[in-house]
């Protein structure tokens, strides 16, 4: 019994410690309202476990989570459609932590073309 309570305690402590930086999986870590980020692409990553962008906006470097690679590719966002230096508009939700420059995008707009990486969420 003592072991069990120690384990539970350790798990709760870890969860609390990790809480501040929770990210990536799901949408629970984001703010509910729509968020728009406009900036310049600094880095593109299209691989597993999910695609990401680094975007410079008003002097701040943002981390933008996209979908897993197959889903991102299905949205048309594949190698060659965007390059470092391109202007991008990312629509989605930002981290609920105001100090964390991180968002999860539902739609990217580059050069007038929309890439809906979470089409079922865009506009909902």
């Amino acid at each position: 019994m003592k072991t069990l309570s120690t384990t539970v305690l350790a798990v709760v402590a870890l969860a609390a410690a990790g809480g501040a930086a929770l990210a990536h999986h799901g949408w629970f870590w984001t703010d509910d309202g729509d968020f728009v980020l406009e900036g310049t692409i600094e880095e593109i990553y299209l691989g597993n476990p999910h695609a990401t962008l680094k975007v410079m906006a008003e002097g701040e470097l943002w981390h933008v989570d996209l979908a897993p690679p197959s889903r991102t590719a299905a949205a048309g966002f594949v190698e060659g459609v965007a390059a470092v230096g391109d202007e991008v508009i990312a629509l989605g939700q930002r981290s609920a932590d105001p100090d964390e420059l991180k968002m999860k995008a539902e739609r990217l707009t580059i050069d007038g073309v929309n890439y809906d990486v979470y089409p079922d969420r865009v506009g909902s």
């Binding site: 384990t7 990210a23 999986h25």
Partner: peptide, 22 residues
């Protein structure tokens, strides 16, 4: 055995948490 339970549960929990932190 008690240490084993705590340590392995901790390893497993941290492993799952990697995808949610960072």
């Amino acid at each position: 055995g008690a240490a084993s339970l705590v340590l392995w549960t901790g390893v497993l929990f941290c492993g799952r948490l990697i995808a949610f932190v960072g």
